[in-house]
């Protein structure tokens, strides 16, 4: 295994290769032992300052990144657009360059515009980690999802994963498809026809409009949230109808002949895509995903920080 990442930024799963993913998983294994002991901190990143720049709301990703940074002993500055000068009309590059002028080494950014992270990586002199850019990519989520599948089922290769729900507005879906395909899994997307993008088949995934068929086929069901905040038109008649067609309840789960693993990237709309008894069921690994998120993000930060020295030396 090559012992370094092939990239200097984590902009999307599209930009990294299988070896990178495996290296991140291997490093995350080590960090998982670190975060499960009583002193959960290692000194690796003590000379690094990371800025968490969030132009969009977030709970899990932000807390997870912040914990990952703290457990690596990095210094952190947090920034959210609502309480900043962005509301006075400052541009993205100006905002970031001003933060960088205060000697920040890495930027973790979430932004509502697709491609914002790529734009930042091209136009500023810093390392960028994409924490979600619009409907484009959310690489760390895909990595932690694949890592959680690997942890639960032993391997990702050859497994059948169904991604169910709002595929059209989901960056998690795109990154998940890319990551799972790179690791050799079979992927299916399932949802109402209006929420399945027209050209998704070109990514090499199966398309299914019937939830029952998808559940019978898969080993893992990754339930996505209906992103009402990104839906400017009506894609289905009502939430109730969506739930009846595409929601999983305990009965659906028990009617299946085999045990499938239930995942959800959060935040859950309880009673919409899955009911509470499914979310809290022992086949659900939703909270394992959250735990693994910290280990995966520690691994990404650690491996990228290592690349920085190489750049400086060159």
């Amino acid at each position: 295994m090559e012992e370094k990442l092939s990239v200097n930024h984590l902009l999307g799963i599209k930009n990294i290769n299988q070896n990178d993913i495996k290296l991140i998983f291997k490093t995350a294994d080590n960090f998982k032992t670190v975060i499960n002991r009583s002193i959960k901190r290692v000194p690796s990143l003590r000379d690094i300052t990371v800025a968490n720049i969030f132009f969009e709301n977030s709970t899990r990703t932000r807390v997870s990144f912040e914990l990952a940074e703290k457990r690596l002993s990095a210094d952190i500055v947090n920034f959210s657009s609502t309480s900043s000068s962005v509301s006075k009309g400052e541009t993205l590059i100006d905002t970031v360059n001003n933060i960088l002028a205060m000697k920040v080494d890495m930027v973790v950014m979430r932004h509502p515009a697709p491609g914002a992270a790529v734009f930042l990586a091209k136009n500023t002199n810093t390392q960028v980690i994409n924490a979600g850019d619009g409907t484009h990519e959310h690489p760390t989520q895909a990595l932690l999802d694949a890592y959680s599948i690997k942890e639960k089922l032993g391997d990702v290769k050859g497994k059948k994963i169904a991604i169910i729900g709002d595929i059209l507005h989901s960056r998690v879906a795109i990154s998940n498809i890319l990551c799972l395909k790179k690791l050799g899994a079979e992927v299916m997307v399932c949802g109402p026809a209006t929420l399945i993008p027209k050209y998704i088949g070109s990514m090499g995934v199966k398309i299914e409009y019937n939830l029952q068929n998808a559940l019978k086929w898969c080993d893992v069901a990754n339930m996505l949230r209906i992103q009402l905040e990104r839906q400017d038109i009506k894609y289905f008649p009502s939430l109730r109808e969506y739930t009846m067609q595409y929601g999983i309840n305990l009965q659906t789960l028990q009617n299946l002949e085999k045990e499938i693993v239930i995942m959800h990237p959060g935040p859950i709309n309880r009673g919409v895509e899955i009911t509470s008894d499914v979310a809290d069921h022992n086949q659900s690994i939703i909270l394992n995903q959250v735990e693994n998120g910290v280990a995966i993000r520690m691994a990404v930060l650690y491996l990228l920080a290592m690349k920085k020295t190489e750049n400086v030396k060159n």
Partner: peptide, 9 residues
Amino acid sequence: FRKGDKFLI
């Protein structure tokens, strides 16, 4: 860490 050419895995 970050001081030489070595990658510390």
